[in-house]
Amino acid sequence: MIPFLFALATSGFAGAADFRTVDEVMARFEKEPEVREVQEMVLQYSKTDPKYVNEWMSASRNAAWLPEISVAYDYDNGYGYDYAYDVNADGELDGSDVDNDHGMSVRAKWRFDRLVMSSDRIRVISESQDIVKLRDKVLEEITRLYFDRRRLQVDVLLAGGGDLKTQIKNEMRLQELTAQIDAYTGGRFSAAINEK
């Protein structure tokens, strides 16, 4: 496999003498995603975007408006036969009756205290705390990785390739950082570089 990142960073670049300003150096990386784009990739991949948490919070609030509904139906079928007995004869059917009873009940119950505070809502708030911590943690880590990688690229760009051992070491480190960023973004980072 062609070490594309190292080639990107070194091929065509003669060294620090080619650059005069910070902006010129930074312009060399215009075709790569910006850090905020990478942060967005992480949020999407890890499903820790604030919109998910807001949806949870909203759902837990509004769920209390929905009543507990219970529906019941019962059916009662009763029948009976009446026999009349005479002393000189066998028993004879005298009469019969059949009853069909249908019953239906619908019940709706609202617990207004759950509009104020409910265990479900507290659970959502608790879970959202874990999500916030996870989000802050992965964003911190991805930001560090992104700029570690960018610093290495700048070093390679301005200091030149160095000897073969240094070039290989830099290339391996660059690939490692790229792979780590891909792990956090589900491969979107490398895909975005290739697209551009």
Partner: peptide, 12 residues
């Protein structure tokens, strides 16, 4: 906060 119960019964 109270609890509200609505009940509808039908029998035939």
């Amino acid at each position: 906060a109270p609890q509200l119960d609505l009940k509808f019964d039908y029998g035939a």
